[in-house]
Each structure stands twice: as structure tokens, then as C-alpha cells.
Design a protein around this nucleic acid. Sequence first.
RNA 1: GCCGGGGUGGUGGAAUUGGUAGACACGCAAGACUUAAAAUCUUGUGUCCAUUAGGACGUGCGGGUUCAAGUCCCGCCCCUGGUACCA
Length: 919
Amino acid sequence: FQEYEKKWQKYWEEKQVFKVEIDKSKPKFYALDMFPYPSGAGLHVGHPLGYIASDIVARYKRIKGFNVLHPMGFDSFGLPAEQYAIQTGQHPAITTEKNINRYKEQLRNLGFSFDWSREIRTSNPDYYRWTQWIFLQLFKSWYNNDTDRAEPITELIKRFNNEGNININAACDEDTPMFTAKDWKEMSEREQQEILAKYRLTYLADTMVNWCPALGTVLANDEVKDGVSERGGHPVIRKKMSQWSMRITAYAERLLKGLDTLDWPEPMKEMQRNWIGKSMGAELLFQVEGLDVDIKVFTTRVDTTFGVTYLALAPEHPLVEQLATPELKEQVNQYVETAKNRSERDRMSDVKTISGQFTGSYAINPFNNERIPIWIADYVLAGYGTGAVMAVPSSDTRDYAFAKHFNLPIIPVQEGEHTDISKEDFDPKAGTMINSDFLNGLTVKEAIQKAIEFVEKKGIGKGKVNYKMRDAIFSRQRYWGEPIPIYYKDGIPYAFDEKDLPLVLPEIDEYKPTETGEPPLGRAKNFKTKDGYPIELNTMPGWAGSSWYFLRYMDPQNKERFVSKEAESYWNEVDLYIGGAEHATGHLLYSRFWNKFLYDIGYVSSEEPFKKLINQGMIQGRSNFAYRVTGTNKFVSYNLRKQYDTTPIHVDVNMVYNDVLDIEAFKAWRDDLKDAEFILEDGKYICGSEVEKMSKSKFNVVNPDDIVEKYGADTLRLYEMFLGPLEQFKPWNTNGIEGVHKFLKKLWKLFHDDAGNLNLSDAEPSKEELKILHKTIKKVEEDIERYSFNTSVSTFMICVNELSALKCNNRSILTDLTIILSPYAPYIAEELWSLLGHGTSIIHASFPQWKEEYITEDSFEYPVSVNGKMRAKISLPLTLSKEEIEKRVLESDSVQKWLDGKDPKKVIVVPNKIVNLVV
RNA sequence: GCCGGGGUGGUGGAAUUGGUAGACACGCAAGACUUAAAAUCUUGUGUCCAUUAGGACGUGCGGGUUCAAGUCCCGCCCCUGGUACCA
């Protein structure tokens, strides 16, 4: 394999074998992998898993006559390169280039059929010019809820001029004021731009952001996990900053609905649904006693309004100050301060402590005019709903706990299942209403309906849909990202002219933020437009470039458009997308958003970008341990370790084979182990093992290059598929690799003599050989079509075992076999194919059709069970009717023996499957 | 807590529609070839009883439906992924 892998790599490259062009005579297939971020560590055996699967599908589809787009590229803007640059002063572009080259070399060694002529890099100006272009389109668009799509902002301005915004139903900021055409015309330029910002799909606004001091940048919600940054695990605090945002919330409903049309794993769809977090409810106004203000609350349980015993406001709520009565002002201020200073993380990790503060003010329950106290409580979140809740302790566990803690009244409004507040499983979502005047006796569902009608009729609120999802923060205070094509005139942001793109990332001498706290781009000299206006210093987040790259692959060199109409309409959407599940609420959601937007403005023809998605599972590391007897330099073998007091130490997995330690290598590993002594079992040192994440520090990283060197790329590819279902998380374990390696050798030997010369028979293939071949074709085809790669490899092994038992070396069998093999083990398949005397390296022959006539026999062996127990096997012709089968089975001696002279009460015959007798 | 996914030999896993559970591979054991080893080949390998023939048990636990359950239903246990004071 060392020899012919090299040979074919060279051949494929020289002949550009996998280069693909639009070909309308063939159906298209777009097989895409999530492109990697080129990190300094290179690929480990886990990375190629998904690429192998998509490559198998790509090759299979080619053989089936599809024109296959199977590209690869690099998500080359990112944090690690920048952090490395800050430390070393080396330009991130240099590190990135170096890493990409290493990645490409490793990918090349694995024999993927990527069309490298379509390679893209997000950090390349020819690419990010179009990322900037899309940004500008978003800036120049607003979302019209009436037509349910994005429209040009120029249309909106026209309407403002004609009628103001009174009849406009748009996705816009909550605090957008109403104005007439006259008002609009009288506004200053600045005022108009501020209004437009409330409508634009990307806009500059003061927003509460997740600020990560250690990284010196803001993070999107999906980049924060448990109050710390996903990358690096640094603490994150909430801070108000002027930031660019993407109005993804405008698309919330469509992003949710679109999920139903997708062939994605259910958990993945569920994660996006949860993230979007749609809830239906109502907004309700509570008048404050003695003040001319209303408190707006959002509730999903408007039916329980008769049970409201207090209102609770988030500490950040704007009305807090106004509501605090003079006597309580000090306590209120103190409470608000403490709550604000508590980091998000504390607030989350400490959900059991109940805290709150009475404001001294009261509100009026609009349903029954009862007077209810207004509290401030940190269990109410400023960022969700209206930042205020109506508390119904009898129907909500949190309100209940709060009311108990502060001795507030509790009014039951439901009876039935789970409504008993003294019980542990208290969580009333069912039952009938009580103590609720006109709602009494209704079910929860009916009561909600009626209560909303009541609220709307009385004008004290309205039914409302609420989403958990927030707009996406789009500014990053970093160097190594796409510059935002915006300049400022009198502090007002304006879009770049599209003709001036790309706005190229300027050179700077250091990559840190400036002393004055400006983003790194603040260091750039003359970072101004040609008219001398200052340019935005923030850059785009990591997900910008990856949100549309699948479109650029269709037409990567186009200078006029991000993708030509022709290429876009031919390749359309991604037919198969393979990648990790960790992108559920990040990349996959943003890509769907941008694609829908581009669809709205007429640049792409499918609303959803990824028709079919598969999440490959992570390949974990399998760490090995040696057991040092505490205080000595003696190591005791795994099964004897209990007899000693030991400390396990990580052992480099490359020194361990089938859990047996290579003692010499171990001694040579580190200086302090030179004189190590060993307590062996059966003459061997057995290591312990544990499954952990693959990482350098755990000495469990397996480099694909090593495997390729020892066994070849074909073996590695087959083995990764053989390891188990693609979607599953599984530890890497080299133990079984010999099995697939042996299979390839066996196949090779089938058609070669001992001297290594091709040894083929040109005789007509026997019926038996054909049967094996076509059985394999049928099964392998079915398996690939349902993406079950592990079972299809097994099918292959059975095929070779059977052919080998027949000593089959038939040329025509080999030809067909090679075609089936090529998706899995491309090198060996191409080598065999060329040995057969076929000149080309792509196997153009179509996947041979399996034939029914080869797979059937003239008889079938029926398993026969009596009272559910298998008792006999009877061979019968296939052509028999149900009745005849029944008759022949009953007559047979072996069945008579089990029936013991009795007649069966019931006979069940399933043709081609089974016969069951009930006595 | 809530929402997903899962639990099958010594191990990774197979069983596609309710129809012979354990395919395929690893490991292990025995044998052939060899002076020997490696490689290769052959045979065996769920557990228990039995010399054999054969039998009993067996897919996390307890029930149920069915002629027939790894698969369907009810109630638990455990592992795992996501998510969370989301009103």
C-alpha cells in the first residue's frame, strides 16, 4: 500500500480526477463536510471520521451516475491563531497558512476525493469580500411581517414618507415610537438613522452583552456555557455595550417551522426548537396604585390571574427606582446593587437561595381589582419576556417557594392532578379552574382561551408569542476576523459602497487591544475611507464566514457575484451534510438564518440549506495507565494492583499494544523511568485503561499518519467505519484494526499468486460466485443508502470470505467487486482496476445491479415452531402457496413428532419466513 | 427538574417490517504448516446441565399484549447528550 497509495495520490492530483463542473446531463449530488478550523495540533484519528463517511457517499454517488460536488476548505479566521499572534507577534495569516498546509497533507494521505480546485478559506479577501457583501445586504433590509420576508430598507423609507410607521408590521425593536409621515420628514438625519436602526436586519445598538474580560471580547449566547466561555472556560459578565447585532429573531418562526421539512436527527431539531424557545401566552398590564404607570408582564398562564398574589420584577427593570417608596428606597437600592454585582454564574449556580425585596408599592389585579404587593426578585430575568412576572404561587413552583419564604398569600385556582401544593410533584398543568369567577369549571386550555379573549376585550393586554432566542451579537473586539464594512459620519454608521469591497484587514504591529481599550484595529494607521471617515473597528464573529461557505463552493472563483445564478440553481442545496452535533445552536442556526435571508432577497433558490444532516459521533481517546507502587519506582501489572498501594500514571498509548506494555519503550520514555522495575502477570505487564477525551496531556492521541504508515489509508478508512455506527460516540481502540487489514490482504490474495502476480481466470463465473457478488451488491447498496457504513463493511468481509472459500479468482467477479469496493478502499480498488487493464483511475462503470435470480434459491428452509418454540426446519419449494406450505409442514415426520398425535388448534404461516403451530 | 438517545457474549457491535438473538470483527482455545517464531489456514467459542444425543436459561429490572417480543404497551433502575429560576 505504501507504494500504490503514493502512486494514486499523484495521479489524482495531476489529472485533477475529482474536479467537477456543472453538467446538466447528470443529476447532481452535493456531499459536504463541516470545514475544519486549522488548529496547530493537526488532525487526530477522530477528525476524519465524518470525512470518510461523506467520501464514501460521494464516490458511491459518482459511480451511480451523479455529478458530485464534494469540496473542502478552511474556516481560517479564529481565536487560537490570534492568541498565538499576541504572544509571539507572528502574523495570524502565517500560522494559519502553515496549519492549513499540514491539514491538507494529512487529508491527502487519507485519499479523499475532494475537488481541491474549489478550496475556500474564510480569511481570504476574495472570500470575505462576499461575507461583507452579505452583511451589507442585511444592513439594507428590514423584515416585513405582513409579507413574512425581508425587504429593501429603501421601500420602508418610501412608506415612512407616505404614511409614517403606523401601518407597518415589522420585526423591530420593542421601543420603536409611532410617527406620521410628517414627523418622519421633520426628523434630522441622525433621528432618521436611529429609527432605521430599529428596523435593519443588522443594526448597531446598546445591548447587554456577554463580556469576557480574559478574552477581551464579547461572546454570543451560544458561545457561553454555564457562565464561562466555551473556549478557554473564562468567566463571563453582563455588560452594556454598543454592538452590532443580527436580527435573527425576525426569522424565529420560520426557523422553527422549517425544521419540520428537514431530514435531520431528531435531537438536533429538538435542540434548535429549545433554543428558539417559542411559548404562547399573553401580555398583561397591571396598573400601579397611585402612579400613572403600568407594569407589563408576560405569562403563559393567563388563566391563573385570579391566583396572582404579588408581582415580581427583575432587579434591572426600568421601573424599579420609581416604584420604591421613600421608606424602602435604601433597601431596594441595596438589593438591586447586590443582585447586579452577582455574576451570571453565581446566580445560576445558586438557584436554591431565595432572595427578594418589597418595593413598598402595590398594583391592581385587572381581573378582580385586588391590591397586590410589588416585589423585586432575582429569579426574574431581565432578558426574557418583559422582565416582570405575575406571581401565582398555587400554579408555579418558583412563585410558590418565594411566597412561602416571604409569607405571601397563596390562592389555589385549580383542582385536580398535580395541583396539591403540599405534594412533591406539584406542577399543575392540568385540572379545572376554581376561585376564578368566570373561569370556574373550565379546563386549563379552555380557561387560557377565554382569559385571552377577556383581556383583549378589556384592552388590558393581548395574546402574545414569546421566543427565548435573542438577536445575535455580531461585533468582536478582535483582529483576526472580517472587518465590518461600515464607516461613521458624525457618529452615524453608514454602509460601504459595494464597489469598495473587500474592505481588507489592515496590517498592525501588535494584536492586542489598544491602551484606550479600543479593539486591535484601533492600532491600524489611516484606517479611514477615501473621504477620511473612520471605519468600524470591531470585526465579525467566527460564525460569519461559516454561515454561507456552502454556497461559495458552488462557484468559488466568481468575481462578480458570491455565486452565479447558474451554479446556484444547478447545485441548489446540500444533499448530505456531515458534522458534529456541537454546532446545533451556533453554525447550523446562523446558516439557516442567512440562507433564508438570501432566499428572501432572491439570491438562492432553496429556503433551507442542508436537506439531510448526519452528526458523526466523537472518537474519544482510550488512555492507558501503569500502576506505580506508591513511594517506589516499581510498577505492578493491572490485575495485581489491588495487592499494593498504587498511583496510576498515564502511559503513552503508542507504547501499548493490546493493553500489553512495551517495557523497553516505557523505560526509554522518561529519565525517571530508566530504572523502573515491574511486577508482571503471565510474564507481561498489563495496563489499565479508561475512555477520555483525546488530548495531548493524556498521552492518548492517535495520529492518523502513524496508522496510515503502518496499515495504509484504506485500512484506516475501513476501520473507522467498522468501529460502529457513525453517529455514536466511541473510544478509539486499535485492537480490532488487524481484522480489516486482514480482510484487504485476503481480497488481494484472492487475485494474486504467492509471487504477487495477478492471477485471474477468464472462465464464466459460476452461479454460486454470481450469487455471492449480487447478494453483496444488494446489501452494500441498501446500507450506504441508509448511511449504515459499519454493516456494509461487514457485508464485504462476508463476501470475501465466501469467495475465498470457493477459491474464486474470476476476472469478471473482480471487476464488479472493484467497483463496489472503490467507495470504501479507493486505493486498493483503483490499483486492482488498473491491474485489470482498465486505463482510467476513476471507475466510471456504474454500480452493477444485483439480480433477483441470483439471490433466490429454489427452496426455502422454513423454521417451524410449536407453541412458540423452534422445533424443526423443513425445506420447501419457494413456489408453494400458504395452504400448501401448511399441508406439507403438518405431514412431515419431524413435525408429527412434536405434535405428539394432536391436531394443532392454530397454524400460522408467514411465507418465506416461518411456520407456527399452536397445539 | 424538563427534553432527547441508549442499556444485547470476555470486547466493539449486528438483528432494516414483531418472525431462527449474538452477523462481522477482536480476543481466547485447540490444531495444521515451521527447527522455531511471525504470517497464513482450519476448527471451536452466550451461560448452565449432559460423554453424546439433547435440554434449560438468556437482550438492565418487574409486569403485560401476542402463536411469536431485543423490537410493542405499563411501571422502575442505570448510563449518556442537551437544557434550565424562560414566567
